[in-house]
Amino acid sequence: MATAPHAAPTLITSVQRALRLLEAAASHRDGAPAKQLAREAGIPLPTAYHLLRTLTHEGYLLREKGVFVLGGAVERLAVGGAVQNRRSRLEESLHHWRDALGVPVYFALYREGEIDLVAYADSPHAPAVSEWANFRETGHAHAVGQCLLSQLDDAALGDHLDRHPVQPVTRYSVSDRRALVERLAATGRTQPVVERQEYALGTVCAAIPMMVGSNAAAMAISLPLHQQERLLPAVEQLRSGVGGLLDALAFSISI
């Protein structure tokens, strides 16, 4: 049977022309007038005027003193693409460690006064811990939260605990604020944090502290209680790879 020829792709001429105009404008740091942009883009001048008005209205171009320069919308596109690229790198790193360790892997930041679970990687055979109690409000009860809180100074820690009071989440949770503060002080800001069934019964977790920019961050893993003997070796393996991991996580806090 003869193979049917592939249909040529349908191209939107007006989009192509608008992109050519943006490329032409981008090549002129101090801007260029409409006639020059039309000539460089190979577009009839009346059509170029129409497209330039549209691009200016949408914020992709600005008209200043008779010339067109790139507008803020172009910068937002570039920033958005960079942010997405950094998020992809983060997710790739988490997937790598999930597969290497055979456990769920979490990444969290402390920013704007709150614990923010940015991303995690799990699998059907190693599912992540379900957020059955509000993760931000129960930072005192899970390894990620304790790891982040241990990196705060006294003022920031006090402010956090004023807004999110310590109270038991399970029967194994830290009992009160004083006990938590003593535990965090004993842990130190550079040591892994381990908790057993403090947030979720039947689960053990460990987290390692890191810094991303000026923000406290943490990588963590979790395991079922009956596999707890794997916890410390796994978190030490993760800890040994933090140097390379930090390179992959050199991303903006805006993600």
Rank of each mutant, 00 (worst) to 15 (best):
P124F: 07
L109P: 08
L117E: 04
W97A: 12
L101A: 05
E114P: 00
V83E: 12
G113C: 02
Y110I: 00
Y110P: 01
F107R: 06
A73F: 09
E91S: 10
R86F: 07
V74Y: 09
Y120E: 07
L117T: 05
G81D: 08
L94F: 06
A100T: 13
S123C: 03
L94A: 02
A82R: 15
E92R: 15
L94E: 02
E92V: 11
D99K: 15
R76W: 07
V79L: 14
P104F: 05
W97H: 14
S123Q: 04
P124R: 11
L101Q: 00
D116R: 12
A100N: 07
L90G: 08
R98N: 13
D122L: 02
V79N: 03
S88Q: 14
A121C: 08
R111Q: 13
D116A: 08
W97L: 10
F107E: 05
G102Q: 06
A108T: 08
R89K: 12
L77T: 13
E112M: 01
H95I: 12
V105F: 05
G80Q: 10
I115D: 04
D99P: 01
G81V: 05
N85L: 13
A82E: 15
R76I: 12
Y110A: 01
E92S: 14
A78H: 03
L94T: 02
A121R: 10
P104D: 10
R86W: 08
N85M: 12
D122M: 03
R76M: 12
H95S: 14
D99Q: 15
A108G: 10
A82D: 14
V118S: 10
L94P: 00
L109R: 11
L94Q: 03
A82N: 14
D122V: 07
R76C: 07
L94I: 02
S93T: 14
V105A: 01
D99C: 12
D122Q: 05
G81K: 12
V105T: 02
V74G: 05
L109H: 01
A121G: 05
G80M: 01
Q84P: 04
E112L: 01
R87H: 05
V74H: 07
L77G: 09
V74C: 14
R89Q: 14
V83W: 00
L90R: 09
L90N: 06
I115H: 09
E75S: 09
A121V: 05
Q84K: 15
R89W: 00
A121F: 07
R111V: 12
G102N: 02
H95G: 11
E75M: 08
S88H: 13
H95E: 14
S93G: 14
Y120A: 01
A82M: 13
A78D: 00
